[in-house]
Design a binder for these strands. Structure first.
Length: 234
DNA sequence: ACATTAACGATGA
DNA sequence: TCATCGTTAATGT
Protein backbone atom coordinates (compact mmCIF):
# COMPACT_ATOMS: atom_id res chain seq x y z
CA UNK A 1 0.00 0.00 0.00
CA UNK A 2 1.37 3.38 -1.02
CA UNK A 3 1.79 6.04 1.61
CA UNK A 4 -0.44 9.09 1.37
CA UNK A 5 1.91 11.96 0.58
CA UNK A 6 1.39 15.58 1.68
CA UNK A 7 0.76 16.41 -1.99
CA UNK A 8 -2.10 13.88 -2.06
CA UNK A 9 -3.55 15.38 1.10
CA UNK A 10 -3.33 18.87 -0.37
CA UNK A 11 -5.05 17.79 -3.57
CA UNK A 12 -7.86 16.08 -1.66
CA UNK A 13 -8.23 19.06 0.64
CA UNK A 14 -8.62 21.39 -2.33
CA UNK A 15 -11.08 19.06 -4.04
CA UNK A 16 -13.15 18.96 -0.85
CA UNK A 17 -13.29 22.75 -0.51
CA UNK A 18 -16.85 23.87 -1.34
CA UNK A 19 -15.86 26.72 -3.67
CA UNK A 20 -13.77 24.40 -5.86
CA UNK A 21 -16.97 22.87 -7.29
CA UNK A 22 -17.89 26.03 -9.17
CA UNK A 23 -14.48 26.67 -10.75
CA UNK A 24 -13.83 26.10 -14.42
CA UNK A 25 -11.36 23.28 -15.18
CA UNK A 26 -8.75 25.93 -16.05
CA UNK A 27 -9.31 27.79 -12.78
CA UNK A 28 -9.21 24.56 -10.76
CA UNK A 29 -6.01 23.57 -12.49
CA UNK A 30 -4.33 26.88 -11.67
CA UNK A 31 -5.40 26.56 -8.02
CA UNK A 32 -3.93 23.06 -7.84
CA UNK A 33 -0.73 24.27 -9.51
CA UNK A 34 -0.22 27.44 -7.43
CA UNK A 35 -1.18 26.18 -3.98
CA UNK A 36 1.58 24.71 -1.83
CA UNK A 37 1.55 22.77 1.43
CA UNK A 38 3.82 22.96 4.47
CA UNK A 39 3.92 20.92 7.67
CA UNK A 40 4.09 22.39 11.17
CA UNK A 41 4.67 20.89 14.60
CA UNK A 42 2.43 21.78 17.51
CA UNK A 43 3.22 25.29 18.70
CA UNK A 44 4.89 26.40 15.47
CA UNK A 45 4.15 29.82 13.97
CA UNK A 46 2.31 29.45 10.65
CA UNK A 47 2.44 33.13 9.90
CA UNK A 48 3.53 35.99 12.09
CA UNK A 49 1.86 39.28 12.87
CA UNK A 50 3.38 42.06 10.78
CA UNK A 51 4.23 39.88 7.79
CA UNK A 52 2.77 40.68 4.36
CA UNK A 53 -0.49 38.81 3.70
CA UNK A 54 0.94 36.99 0.72
CA UNK A 55 -1.24 33.88 0.95
CA UNK A 56 -4.67 32.59 1.75
CA UNK A 57 -4.31 29.92 4.44
CA UNK A 58 -6.06 26.52 4.41
CA UNK A 59 -5.96 23.86 7.12
CA UNK A 60 -5.35 20.55 5.36
CA UNK A 61 -4.76 18.64 8.56
CA UNK A 62 -4.54 19.46 12.28
CA UNK A 63 -5.70 22.72 13.79
CA UNK A 64 -4.61 26.37 13.92
CA UNK A 65 -5.50 29.30 16.12
CA UNK A 66 -5.45 33.06 15.60
CA UNK A 67 -3.97 35.05 18.47
CA UNK A 68 -1.91 38.03 19.53
CA UNK A 69 0.91 38.12 22.03
CA UNK A 70 1.58 41.30 24.00
CA UNK A 71 5.02 42.67 24.67
CA UNK A 72 4.68 41.30 28.20
CA UNK A 73 4.27 37.79 26.83
CA UNK A 74 0.55 37.46 27.52
CA UNK A 75 -1.46 35.99 24.68
CA UNK A 76 -5.09 36.34 23.67
CA UNK A 77 -6.58 33.68 21.40
CA UNK A 78 -9.41 34.74 19.12
CA UNK A 79 -10.51 31.79 17.07
CA UNK A 80 -9.68 28.15 16.49
CA UNK A 81 -9.45 26.98 12.89
CA UNK A 82 -10.07 23.24 12.45
CA UNK A 83 -9.05 21.14 9.46
CA UNK A 84 -11.01 21.76 6.27
CA UNK A 85 -11.26 25.49 6.94
CA UNK A 86 -9.70 28.53 5.30
CA UNK A 87 -8.56 31.65 7.13
CA UNK A 88 -6.86 34.99 6.54
CA UNK A 89 -8.83 36.06 3.45
CA UNK A 90 -9.69 39.42 5.06
CA UNK A 91 -6.08 40.53 5.23
CA UNK A 92 -5.33 39.20 1.74
CA UNK A 93 -8.23 41.22 0.30
CA UNK A 94 -7.19 44.35 2.17
CA UNK A 95 -3.54 43.87 1.28
CA UNK A 96 -2.56 44.69 4.84
CA UNK A 97 0.16 43.25 7.04
CA UNK A 98 -0.96 40.30 9.14
CA UNK A 99 -2.72 41.77 12.19
CA UNK A 100 -2.47 38.52 14.17
CA UNK A 101 -0.29 35.48 14.64
CA UNK A 102 -1.50 32.16 13.28
CA UNK A 103 -0.14 29.24 15.28
CA UNK A 104 -0.49 25.45 14.96
CA UNK A 105 -2.06 23.90 18.05
CA UNK A 106 -1.70 20.36 16.72
CA UNK A 107 0.78 18.95 14.22
CA UNK A 108 -0.68 20.39 11.04
CA UNK A 109 -0.44 20.60 7.28
CA UNK A 110 -1.20 24.05 5.92
CA UNK A 111 -2.12 25.08 2.36
CA UNK A 112 -0.84 28.36 0.93
CA UNK A 113 -2.64 29.93 -2.01
CA UNK A 114 -0.71 32.92 -3.41
CA UNK A 115 -2.47 36.26 -3.12
CA UNK A 116 -2.35 36.77 -6.90
CA UNK A 117 -4.20 33.50 -7.48
CA UNK A 118 -6.75 34.36 -4.83
CA UNK A 119 -7.44 37.85 -6.24
CA UNK A 120 -7.62 36.42 -9.76
CA UNK A 121 -10.24 33.89 -8.65
CA UNK A 122 -12.19 36.60 -6.86
CA UNK A 123 -12.24 38.66 -10.04
CA UNK A 124 -12.92 35.87 -12.50
CA UNK A 125 -15.44 33.70 -10.70
CA UNK A 126 -18.53 35.21 -9.13
CA UNK A 127 -19.39 31.92 -7.38
CA UNK A 128 -16.09 32.21 -5.59
CA UNK A 129 -16.79 35.84 -4.67
CA UNK A 130 -20.20 34.84 -3.36
CA UNK A 131 -18.65 32.05 -1.31
CA UNK A 132 -16.25 34.62 0.18
CA UNK A 133 -19.13 36.90 1.14
CA UNK A 134 -20.82 33.99 2.89
CA UNK A 135 -17.58 33.11 4.65
CA UNK A 136 -17.01 36.67 5.88
CA UNK A 137 -20.67 36.89 6.90
CA UNK A 138 -20.42 33.66 8.88
CA UNK A 139 -17.34 34.98 10.68
CA UNK A 140 -19.11 38.23 11.51
CA UNK A 141 -21.99 36.25 13.01
CA UNK A 142 -19.48 34.15 14.90
CA UNK A 143 -17.83 37.13 16.54
CA UNK A 144 -21.11 38.82 17.40
CA UNK A 145 -22.29 35.65 19.09
CA UNK A 146 -18.96 35.51 20.89
CA UNK A 147 -19.53 38.98 22.32
CA UNK A 148 -22.98 37.89 23.47
CA UNK A 149 -21.42 34.92 25.24
CA UNK A 150 -18.83 37.17 26.88
CA UNK A 151 -21.50 39.59 28.08
CA UNK A 152 -23.30 36.79 29.86
CA UNK A 153 -20.43 36.71 32.33
CA UNK A 154 -20.75 32.95 32.53
CA UNK A 155 -17.60 30.91 31.98
CA UNK A 156 -19.61 27.78 31.19
CA UNK A 157 -21.27 29.71 28.36
CA UNK A 158 -17.88 30.85 27.06
CA UNK A 159 -16.51 27.32 26.96
CA UNK A 160 -19.75 26.02 25.41
CA UNK A 161 -19.65 28.71 22.73
CA UNK A 162 -16.01 28.02 21.93
CA UNK A 163 -16.78 24.33 21.47
CA UNK A 164 -19.99 24.92 19.54
CA UNK A 165 -18.17 27.25 17.15
CA UNK A 166 -15.51 24.63 16.42
CA UNK A 167 -18.30 22.24 15.42
CA UNK A 168 -20.27 24.91 13.56
CA UNK A 169 -21.27 23.45 10.21
CA UNK A 170 -21.83 26.90 8.65
CA UNK A 171 -18.28 27.95 9.38
CA UNK A 172 -16.61 24.56 9.07
CA UNK A 173 -18.64 22.24 6.85
CA UNK A 174 -17.57 18.64 6.95
CA UNK A 175 -16.08 18.82 10.43
CA UNK A 176 -16.58 15.75 12.56
CA UNK A 177 -18.20 15.46 15.97
CA UNK A 178 -14.84 14.57 17.48
CA UNK A 179 -11.94 16.97 17.58
CA UNK A 180 -8.35 16.55 18.76
CA UNK A 181 -7.85 19.50 21.07
CA UNK A 182 -6.46 19.72 24.60
CA UNK A 183 -8.35 21.29 27.49
CA UNK A 184 -5.49 23.77 27.73
CA UNK A 185 -6.30 25.03 24.22
CA UNK A 186 -10.06 24.99 24.85
CA UNK A 187 -9.34 27.22 27.81
CA UNK A 188 -7.18 29.60 25.78
CA UNK A 189 -9.75 29.80 22.97
CA UNK A 190 -12.54 30.32 25.50
CA UNK A 191 -10.62 32.98 27.38
CA UNK A 192 -10.62 31.04 30.66
CA UNK A 193 -8.03 29.04 32.59
CA UNK A 194 -7.51 25.34 31.99
CA UNK A 195 -9.06 24.57 35.38
CA UNK A 196 -12.27 26.40 34.53
CA UNK A 197 -12.40 24.77 31.10
CA UNK A 198 -11.91 21.39 32.78
CA UNK A 199 -14.78 22.04 35.20
CA UNK A 200 -17.11 23.28 32.45
CA UNK A 201 -16.34 20.24 30.30
CA UNK A 202 -17.10 17.86 33.14
CA UNK A 203 -20.39 19.60 33.89
CA UNK A 204 -21.33 19.21 30.23
CA UNK A 205 -20.20 15.60 30.23
CA UNK A 206 -22.40 14.90 33.27
CA UNK A 207 -25.33 16.25 31.26
CA UNK A 208 -24.47 13.95 28.36
CA UNK A 209 -23.60 16.85 26.05
CA UNK A 210 -19.95 15.99 25.40
CA UNK A 211 -17.57 13.11 25.91
CA UNK A 212 -14.11 13.92 27.22
CA UNK A 213 -11.18 11.99 25.75
CA UNK A 214 -7.43 12.20 26.16
CA UNK A 215 -6.47 15.28 24.16
CA UNK A 216 -9.81 15.25 22.43
CA UNK A 217 -13.44 16.15 22.84
CA UNK A 218 -16.57 14.72 21.25
CA UNK A 219 -19.84 16.61 20.97
CA UNK A 220 -22.91 14.43 21.52
CA UNK A 221 -25.59 17.13 21.68
CA UNK A 222 -24.76 20.24 19.66
CA UNK A 223 -28.14 21.96 20.21
CA UNK A 224 -27.71 21.66 23.99
CA UNK A 225 -24.21 23.12 23.65
CA UNK A 226 -25.57 26.05 21.64
CA UNK A 227 -28.28 26.61 24.25
CA UNK A 228 -25.70 26.94 27.02
CA UNK A 229 -23.57 29.20 24.82
CA UNK A 230 -26.55 31.50 24.25
CA UNK A 231 -27.44 31.59 27.92
CA UNK A 232 -30.67 29.67 27.35
CA UNK A 233 -29.58 27.33 30.03
CA UNK A 234 -31.37 26.83 33.43
C1' DA B 1 -17.98 35.25 45.00
C1' DC B 2 -15.34 33.51 41.58
C1' DA B 3 -11.49 33.41 38.49
C1' DT B 4 -6.38 32.91 38.20
C1' DT B 5 -1.84 31.03 38.96
C1' DA B 6 0.90 27.55 40.96
C1' DA B 7 1.67 23.09 42.11
C1' DC B 8 1.19 18.11 42.51
C1' DG B 9 0.51 13.40 41.28
C1' DA B 10 -1.82 10.29 38.01
C1' DT B 11 -2.35 8.58 33.57
C1' DG B 12 -2.53 7.92 28.45
C1' DA B 13 0.04 7.66 23.94
C1' DT C 1 9.16 10.09 28.41
C1' DC C 2 6.25 13.78 27.77
C1' DA C 3 1.79 15.75 27.14
C1' DT C 4 -2.44 15.91 29.21
C1' DC C 5 -5.67 15.54 32.87
C1' DG C 6 -7.86 16.03 37.58
C1' DT C 7 -7.51 18.29 41.64
C1' DT C 8 -6.31 21.38 45.56
C1' DA C 9 -4.35 25.52 47.70
C1' DA C 10 -3.06 30.23 47.72
C1' DT C 11 -3.82 34.61 45.66
C1' DG C 12 -6.14 38.42 43.21
C1' DT C 13 -9.97 41.44 41.76
Amino acid sequence: MLAVTPADKLRRFLEASAWMQSLTPEQAERVQRDTLARSFDTGAMVCARGAPSAHWIGVVEGMLKVETVTAGGKSASFIGVPSGAWVGEGSVIKGELRPYDIVAIRDSIVAYMPRATFLWLMQENHHFSRWLIDQLNARLGHFIAMVQSLRLNDTNAQVAYCLASLFNQDLYPGSRSQLAISQEEIGRLSGVSRQIANRALHEMQDKGIVRIGYGSIEVLDLPALQAIAAGNNE
